[in-house]
Design a protein around this nucleic acid. Structure first.
Lengths: 341, 341
DNA sequence: TAGAAACAAGCAAACGTTTTCTTTTGAGGA
DNA sequence: TCCTCAAAAGAAAACGTTTGCTTGTTTCTA
């Protein structure tokens, strides 16, 4: 019961090696009777084809590598799960490694993956060396997830921050809000910038200009302070009627800051967020937010990878950019207000 | 620049194939001069050994499979991360797949892993078929994580629920508490039973018997109701002075139930928990809890796997059971009370 | 100076498949 | 009855390594 090889099966069923191979792979016609004999032998010997030998001949490993900055980050892992679902269904297994948000680590991992001849790689990169990736791209399909590389022509699957933020802002505007505060991350964060662009675009579409006083850009702790300052420094009738927090951590501090100022949500002020925040089991508030659906993102990445693998070197369609559609989950943290003249 | 083989390197540097192999693997002495020549050729051709061919000869893939029920479960993934760290350092890559808490899925995955000749498998199983696993064990080291299989002699890395619960209870007792309520899951959950055993053991060690009225066993929603009933049905001087919630979800409902009863934590009642609960960004309460340290668990699993791989078939030490040490994180949700006579 | 030991490096045989090419077999048509 | 043709199955050559065995070249000892 050590390890049965194709040879053993051939001997046991009295056929040649090629016949066994054909039965296993089913890519050539084989007589029904002999097929049955072979299958029986396979079952009896518990034969399982050796993946290494097989991929040496076929040059395919049925292996897809995936690199993420942090393997314990929940949203990343949901994306991985989405990708895993579609890849596993197609017979691909997933190799995973975490770069620990470290360019050197990422390169080490990619080197390992490529020496293992993965059929493709999904990559949430933490570096921006376009030349490096251009070299890699020639070896196997490379699909970027979540973060792209400036100046690199490559497949990218990422949420559409701008449109999502625009849609959410749109909704506030449609609910009569005109003075909307944006609590956003610093300008060096690309995603933050894109979300702000969407926010501004929605305002502009309504003929409004973003009011600089209402736009906060700071780290999470700074955001809390700035928001408090905003409310304490302005007269009540100049207060924003809604606050847009651009990520979940910010949403949490926004809620607690507003509550500590004695404002009730949504009666006194509406709050919406990009991404769902955890307000705690007991909080009655259910946030209105843009659902990021990382699993959907992963699914897209997985399907793109499959497509690329099937295309092979041929039919080099140009790089593709895909986004999951932004959906808004409506909670009870916002309300319609009377439009002011 | 297609794909350089060892043959190309040999030709380019004017040596035999074996010499190149020896340079690459460094397991045989080779003249310093020729080694330099070979290394130069390797660098120039961008030669990378083919993992498939290599593992066909060596029967090692440097691949470890890991199966979890849910790839997006945070604590599982922290464990995976812990394992990944130590395995990556030893040159092993990780194949991951999620069984979706489904025995058939798990077997499909394991079949795939074994046909890929993984060097070992780490498994958070969701099935209990000991015979099935006994067969698998002969193929490659199999280390169970978190959940074991009754009746199976196998390596198991799991938290020591009993000791951890005992230690936490111990701490309450040392703080003068004598009437401690346990809010626990149903009896069919093995981990719940073990935690309760630890709880009881600590009480016994102090000459106390568990008071049945104080022990709640129900699902999360039922726990909330039962706890409320407990307090409304008992006279105030028979109330527990502390509540031990056996998991994070329960801790959350325990806190909200107690608060809704008008009890202040920790002034009126102490609360401790097995595992950290998320009380929300804004809650001033910081729970006292047993830290489960899943990453540590993963690290242990990874190291055990490495040990098993190194042992090979030889030195079959009996199956090992390891646990991470239980550490208590002390928050402000409990306090010392005056001992009663 | 001759012979033995020590060291370097090459040859070739695996490892377990897939696949091309060839052979065998049986059936159908003339 | 013979020939042709299709279908089925076998033989053997890869795929890119590792490694046991062998050969060739030094260097040291006597």
């Amino acid at each position: 019961m050590a390890k049965a090889t194709i040879r053993d099966v051939a001997r046991a069923s009295g056929v040649g090696l090629s016949t066994v191979s054909r039965v296993v792979n089913g890519n050539y016609p084989v007589n029904e009777q002999t097929r049955a004999r072979v299958l029986k032998a396979i079952a009896e010997l518990g034969y399982v084809p050796d993946a290494a030998a097989r991929s040496m001949k076929t040059n395919r490993t049925l292996l897809v590598g995936i690199v993420v900055p942090d393997i314990s980050n929940a949203s990343m892992m949901q994306a991985v799960r989405g990708a895993e679902r579609v890849l596993a269904a197609a017979g691909y297994a997933l190799m995973i490694a975490s770069s620990e948000d470290n360019a050197a680590g990422e390169q080490r991992i990619l080197g390992d993956f490529f020496s293992r001849k993965v059929d493709a790689v999904i990559l949430a990169t933490c570096q921006t060396d376009a030349a490096y990736f251009r070299r890699l791209q020639t070896d196997a399909p490379l699909v970027f997830m979540e973060r792209g590389v400036p100046g690199l022509e490559a497949d990218l699957v990422a949420e559409d921050h701008e449109t999502a933020a625009e849609t959410l802002t749109e909704m506030l505007l449609a609910n009569g809000h005109r003075r909307i505060a944006l609590v956003n991350g610093g300008p060096h964060i690309p995603a933050a910038q894109r979300r702000q662009d969407g926010f501004v675009r929605a305002l502009r579409a309504h003929g409004l200009a973003p009011e600089p006083r209402y736009v906060i850009r700071a780290n999470t702790a700074g955001s809390a302070r700035a928001l408090r300052d905003l409310f304490t420094s302005l007269p009540g009738d100049a207060w924003p009627t809604a606050v847009f927090a651009t990520n979940n951590r910010r949403a949490e501090v926004v809620v607690s800051t507003l509550e500590s100022l004695g404002l009730r949500i949504p009666d006194d002020i509406s709050v919406v967020s990009y991404g769902n925040a955890n307000l705690g089991e007991n909080h009655a508030l259910r946030l209105t937010y843009v659902d990021q659906e990382p699993a959907e993102l992963g699914r897209l990445a997985g399907e793109l990878v499959l497509k690329r693998i099937r295309q092979g070197a041929s039919g080099t369609t140009g790089p593709v950019r895909m986004s999951s559609e932004a959906t808004i989950v409506s909670g009870n943290s916002h309300r319609r207000i009377a439009e002011r003249v």
